[in-house]
Design a protein around this nucleic acid. Sequence first.
DNA 1: TGGACTGCCTAACGATCGTTAGGTAGGGTC
DNA 2: GACCCTACCTAACGATCGTTAGGCAGTCCA
Lengths: 196, 196
Amino acid sequence: MTVDLSARQRILDAAAGLLSERGYGETSLRLLASEVGIKAASVYYHFDSKEALYTEVLQAGMDIMIDRFEAVEEADFDSGRSRLQAHVSGHLDALHSNLQYTALHVSEFRTAPATVRTQLVPRRDEYESMWTALLTAVLPETPATEISILRLGLFGAMNSSIDWFDAAKGGLGEFSDVITDAFWAGADNRKRRIAS
Amino acid sequence: MTVDLSARQRILDAAAGLLSERGYGETSLRLLASEVGIKAASVYYHFDSKEALYTEVLQAGMDIMIDRFEAVEEADFDSGRSRLQAHVSGHLDALHSNLQYTALHVSEFRTAPATVRTQLVPRRDEYESMWTALLTAVLPETPATEISILRLGLFGAMNSSIDWFDAAKGGLGEFSDVITDAFWAGADNRKRRIAS
DNA sequence: TGGACTGCCTAACGATCGTTAGGTAGGGTC
DNA sequence: GACCCTACCTAACGATCGTTAGGCAGTCCA
């Protein structure tokens, strides 16, 4: 009954790394297997197919982001702005602490096989709706269409950091500040301008 | 002396479409050729290799963005904000008017073969430095490190629109407004807060 | 009329791909 | 000691890949 999960996990980790670095088509099962120290055929003992493995890696990436969002929500906030700030920090930290899994979701989802994409849509929608609810709560009186645009812009800005962020050059803190400032003040300013 | 460019151009166009839709590894020359109505081997009459073709498509995408930036710069602006706004609009319009070429640059560059990436770096750097100069001009007194962060966040927000923008659901104008508002007011607000 | 050039073709090369079939060493259970 | 399960292995399958060699119809110029 004791199942050894470590080999399976090692395959998942290696797959996440290779997939996010090289893309789906350029990552062969033989290369992946050699990274783990086994043969390609042995991957099939743990996973049904390359697509199933891909799906599971992407699923794990999404779970990481959702878990973090829920953890952040546990805290108490003295303002809408600090709540937004905490979530921006949380998203960025979760993103970069598990880059192989999460970056894959940002950069490779679009070109993933249709069967893979379909399985992931519900979980992605779930995460998006969490953010929509958050923005609606901290930016009341902002129309839904604008909330939607803000969320997409915010996601774009945050997720782009996987392409350029270099931990050696400084923390994510400053980026987190700038982004929060931008979308907070921007929305606020816009609201006042339109109201007048 | 008259060279027939139409076939070559048709290959480039089809390649841009397939590459941005399916990724490099999943786009075979046989599929590409069938799209154009020729055989895979005939692609080699026009291009040296698959990588050379890929490089040229990416190069064209970058040229589109740079040309647009320069065209926008021709105009007169009555404020830094309107200048920024014009460039944001221009970037978004150029991006979406040539989506197959430009989206490829945003989404697939990271996983492109090293030899392809190396050839494109100078042109990408050029475009980035144009934006750095722009932001430095319209946001004076903002430290260089923050300009850099702002540019990266702005790029991320704008470029993410390739994943979700649906022309059928409305124009890019509103997104352009929201983004400009955010980064303008955010930087402004931040400057005042830090100064105090 | 003939040679050169253009723009495609067919056929095939070796390499590599995801995947399957079947075997085997080693540990746990009765 | 017989059995079974786990976690791998070797070997091979057909398919597909990028690429090359060589041929052929058409056009153009001398």
